[in-house]
Every structure is written in C-alpha cells, then in structure tokens.
Design a protein around this nucleic acid. Structure first.
Length: 204
DNA sequence: CAGTCGATGTACT
DNA sequence: GTACATCGACTGG
C-alpha cells in the first residue's frame, strides 16, 4: 500500500478534489485498520466561495484549513456532527476538499459498531458526518498529518475524467452555482442527491 | 418513495 | 437571535 505523499495535496484544490476520487482513505486505530474508497467529494476555497469556512479569513476554528496541504481539517456542525476535509495548496491558503462518502473496504464491523450497531453496509459511510462517525474521527483528529500513521490516503488507479460526475454542492446556501461536487456513479454516494453531469469545473 | 422537522453546540450578526 | 458543508425519525402517498 502506497500512501499518497503530502505533495499530492499541495496542488490546486479542484485538481486534488477530482484526483481524490478512487483513492483509498485509511484510518488506523491501534492495530485496527479501517479503509474505504473515496466516491464523493466537494471543493472549498477562500477565493470566490462564500460558503467556505475560510472565506472570512483565518480564525481559531478554521486555522487548520490555512495550513499547507496534507493536513486533516475536522469541524463540528449542527451541534452534533463532525465532517472531515483534506487541506490543499500552500501554507496561508484556506482551501480543502470535503470527503462526503466512501465505499467501506476494511473494518466494516468496527465501522458498524461506531455507527451504532445495525446499519446496512450502504449506510455506514454514505455522508460526511456518517463517515466520520464510522471512522471515529472527531475533534481529536483535527490537524493530523495525512502520512498514513493515523490517517492518510492510499494510491489507486486514476479514475478517467469521463467517469467523474459534477454537480453543485450539497447543503449550502451561498455560492450555490459553483460546480464543485465531484462523485462517481456508485451506490455508495450520499442519498437523495441530484444526478450530476460530466463537465469541467473552473478553478478559483 | 418524497417531504418535513427536531436535535443540539458553536460562531457570527 | 440566527445560521449551520447533517442525520434519522416520522409522516403521507
């Protein structure tokens, strides 16, 4: 298993977002390995994106988002959920890619226990807060380096451009027009979402 | 299936 | 006060 180097993340955010699809997210808890194939992501950027946490400048809450690419940015939302991003670009740039869904590959029974017992495989990690719960990612994991020690992404064959679907992002009200959600035609993506189109997305 | 709504902490107006 | 990068329970068809 080859863990993606930190340089992978230190590139334009849209590029990283598209190339994250198909990679294997890995999470180690002691001897236990949890992993899954990334099937749905969204890009967020401080420039021209009013929905990004970084849009109003660097603060205590979003500080990790401004670090150099290769950190994990975890935030707490709706009073009860965590979501996780991989930080992109260079130190001082507030940009990241939200991981919205993975196809569980290893450690399904641990994920099921983390999720509360009787969930179907499809419901283990098909949403940004669900996958954080399945992988036991919360405040304590904010700021970790994606070097594979505790979290990281393993390389996998690139997904062809023609297989990358694009849409507007889910659950935001501002900058809704930006086509910055990228996903695969997969049963493992988050539920109830509009089908996408195949298209190129502009960079900030 | 689709639509509605409550839960519940934190940042910001 | 209000909004929030969400989820799950519940309703009605």
């Amino acid at each position: 298993m080859t863990i993606l180097p930190l340089a992978f993340y230190q590139r334009p955010t849209i590029t990283v977002a598209r190339e994250m699809l198909g990679k294997i997210f890995v999470r180690r808890i002691g001897e236990t390995l949890l992993s899954g194939r990334i099937v749905e992501v969204e890009a967020y950027h401080e420039i021209g994106d009013e929905s990004s946490h970084s849009h109003r400048g660097r603060r205590a809450r979003n500080d990790i988002m401004f670090r150099d690419g290769g950190h994990l940015y975890v935030y707490f939302t709706y009073g009860m959920h965590f979501c996780m991003n991989v930080v992109t670009e260079a130190e001082g740039v507030g940009a990241a890619v939200l991981i919205r869904a993975i196809e569980p590959l290893e450690g399904l029974e641990v994920m099921r226990r983390n999720r509360g017992g009787d969930k179907r495989d499809r419901d283990l990690a098909n949403g940004p807060a669900k996958l954080c719960q399945a992988l036991a990612i919360g405040r304590g994991e904010n700021g970790l380096i994606l070097d594979g020690t505790v979290v990281g992404a393993a390389d996998a064959p690139a997904v062809a451009d023609k297989d990358i679907l694009v849409s507007s992002r889910v659950g935001i009200s501002r900058s809704r027009e930006l086509p910055w959600r990228f996903f695969l035609a997969s049963p493992w993506i988050s539920p109830g979402r509009p089908s996408g189109r195949i298209d190129a997305a502009p960079s900030p």
